[in-house]
Amino acid sequence: MKEEILCAGYGGQGIMVMGRVLAYAAMNSGYHVTWMPSYGAEVRGGTAHSMVRVHSNSIASPAVRYPTSCIVMNKPSLLKFSKRVKSHGLLLIDSSKISDGEIKQAVVGLNNICVKKAPFTEIAMSLGEKKVANMVTVGAFNKVKKLFSIKELIKAVSFILRDKDELITINEKAILHGYNMEI
């Protein structure tokens, strides 16, 4: 296992938590793992990203410049990171506010990568909470990549939200919905 994941979107979309859920699930599944946030200077109003490495062996640098899996939750992130996805890697896109034409343009010329998209924010709104778009995405991501068991993902999110009981149910529901959806 050598998975290098980059999650990107606006500040406030839960990009950091997304990475942390994956990191916790990785740790509890017995892998070496690092999580690192993007540096603060670019957060306000711009894109934020978190980087997760999941390896069978010890990890050198925690930074991920060229991801094997890239999750983009908005258009600026799509434009910034799509060209960096490694060959045979995955590009997963929240297409809620991005047109098909824009996506096509962003991935033109990218060979050997798997592009998947779904309107994760819209799906989250249909579940009654726009903010859980990140968890729907995590669920869908794991369905495509099959890195961890769904049980570990649920365990991870309930651990991270252990001080916010009222949020656990909706976040678990979101992960399950993402995991069971067609993508």
Binding site: T34, P37, P62
Partner: peptide, 10 residues
């Protein structure tokens, strides 16, 4: 350094 400070690890 900043990488060791900000990264999460078990």
């Amino acid at each position: 350094d900043g990488a060791l400070g900000q990264m999460m690890e078990p």
